[in-house]
Amino acid sequence: MTYKLILNGKTLKGETTTEAVDAATAEKIFKQYANDNGVDGEWTYDDATKTFTVTE
């Protein structure tokens, strides 16, 4: 399945997608991606749209 991440960081904003077997796997990938890019904030997930959002 395709999952989407919306980044609302102070210095980085944008979107990315990943292919993952489930939401938990996608979350791990996205949290590593956000960490690698210096984004740390409040996480939400919308199962209907398979979208994670992180807001600093």
Rank of each mutant, 00 (worst) to 15 (best):
T25W: 07
D47K: 09
E42W: 12
N35Y: 15
I6T: 05
D47N: 09
A23W: 12
Y3Q: 01
G38S: 08
Y33E: 02
K4L: 09
T16I: 14
T18Q: 06
K50F: 11
K4Y: 13
W43G: 00
V54W: 04
N35D: 09
A26D: 00
F30N: 00
A26W: 01
A26Y: 00
K50G: 05
D22L: 04
D40W: 14
K4I: 11
K31V: 07
T18V: 15
T55D: 07
A23S: 08
T17Y: 15
E15W: 14
E42F: 13
T44I: 09
K10A: 12
K4G: 04
E42T: 14
K28P: 03
A48K: 15
T17S: 12
T11F: 14
T49H: 07
G9W: 06
A26K: 00
Y3A: 01
Y3R: 00
Y33D: 02
D40I: 13
L5W: 03
Y45L: 02
T25M: 09
Y45P: 00
T16E: 06
T51D: 01
F30G: 00
A20D: 03
K4D: 02
T55F: 07
L7S: 03
K50N: 08
A23P: 10
T53E: 05
E56G: 05
E15M: 13
E56W: 14
G14R: 13
L7H: 04
T11H: 11
M1Y: 15
G38T: 04
A23Y: 14
L5N: 00
D36T: 09
D47W: 08
K50R: 15
T55Q: 06
A34F: 03
A34N: 03
N35W: 15
F30Y: 02
G38E: 06
Y45T: 01
I29A: 07
K50M: 11
T44P: 00
T17G: 04
L5F: 06
K31H: 08
D22G: 04
T55H: 07
A48H: 13
K10L: 13
T11Y: 13
Q32P: 02
K10P: 09
T18W: 05
N37H: 15
A24F: 10
D46G: 02
T17W: 15
G14W: 15
G14N: 10
D36A: 13
K50I: 03
G9R: 05
E42L: 13
D22V: 03
E56T: 07
Y45N: 01
K10W: 12
E27M: 14
A48W: 10
F30M: 03
E42M: 12
T25Q: 12
T25P: 02
V21L: 11
E19Y: 15
E15G: 06
E56A: 09
K10Y: 13
D40K: 12
T25E: 14
E27W: 13
K4M: 07
D47M: 10
G38V: 04
D40L: 12
K31N: 05
L12T: 10
T49E: 06
T44K: 09
G9D: 03
G41Q: 02
E15Q: 11
E19W: 13
K10F: 14
L7G: 02
Q32H: 09
N37G: 05
V54N: 02
A20S: 06
Q32D: 07
L12R: 09
N8A: 09
D47Y: 10
Y45F: 07
G9T: 14
T2Q: 11
K31Y: 06
A20W: 02
V39M: 11
V39D: 02
I6P: 00
A24D: 10
T53N: 05
T51L: 04
K50A: 06
I29F: 12
T55V: 08
I6A: 04
T11K: 12
D22A: 04
T55G: 05
E27K: 12
I6D: 03
E27Q: 13
A24G: 08
Y45Q: 01
G14H: 12
A23N: 06
F52N: 00
A20R: 03
E27P: 00
L12K: 10
T16K: 11
I6Q: 05
I29H: 09
E56L: 06
E15S: 06
T11R: 08
L12H: 13
N37L: 15
T55I: 07
N37E: 07
K28Y: 11
Q32A: 11
Y45V: 02
A23R: 15
F30R: 00
T53Q: 06
E56I: 09
T53W: 11
I29Y: 10
N35F: 15
G38F: 07
A26Q: 01
K50S: 06
T49N: 08
K10G: 10
T51K: 03
A24H: 10
K28N: 09
T51F: 03
N35P: 02
A48R: 07
F52W: 07
K31P: 00
W43I: 03
L12V: 12
Q32M: 12
T51G: 02
N35E: 13
T17I: 08
T18P: 01
A20N: 04
T16M: 15
K50V: 04
F52M: 02
W43V: 02
N35M: 13
E42G: 05
F52P: 00
Y3H: 03
N8W: 15
E56D: 12
L7T: 05
K31G: 03
T17N: 07
N37A: 14
K13L: 07
K4A: 05
Y33A: 03
L5G: 01
A20P: 02
A20Y: 03
A23L: 10
A23M: 13
V54H: 02
I29K: 08
L12Y: 13
N8M: 12
L5E: 00
G38M: 07
K28W: 11
V54F: 05
N37R: 14
A20M: 03
E19K: 10
E56S: 09
D47G: 09
T16R: 13
V21N: 12
F52D: 00
N8Q: 09
T11E: 08
E27F: 15
G41E: 01
E19A: 09
W43K: 00
N8T: 08
N8I: 13
D47P: 15
K31T: 05
N37M: 14
E42V: 15
D47F: 09
T55A: 06
L12W: 14
L5M: 05
I29N: 06
E27Y: 15
V39H: 04
A48I: 11
N35L: 14
T51N: 02
A26S: 02
A34G: 04
F30H: 01
G14L: 14
D40R: 14
E27H: 15
K28A: 13
M1F: 14
T18R: 05
E42S: 10
L12S: 07
T49Q: 06
L7Y: 12
T11S: 11
G41A: 02
Y3P: 00
A48P: 08
A48V: 12
Y45S: 01
T2F: 13
T2V: 13
T18G: 04
V21F: 13
T51A: 04
K31W: 08
A26V: 03
K13S: 10
N8S: 10
L7I: 15
T18N: 04
G41N: 02
L7E: 01
T16D: 04
E19I: 11
N37D: 03
N35S: 15
D36V: 10
A24R: 11
T18S: 06
K31E: 04
N8H: 10
E19N: 13
A48D: 12
T49P: 02
A20Q: 05
D22M: 04
K4R: 13
T17V: 10
F52R: 00
V21E: 11
T51I: 06
G41P: 01
E42N: 11
L5R: 00
T55W: 10
F52K: 00
M1S: 11
Y3T: 00
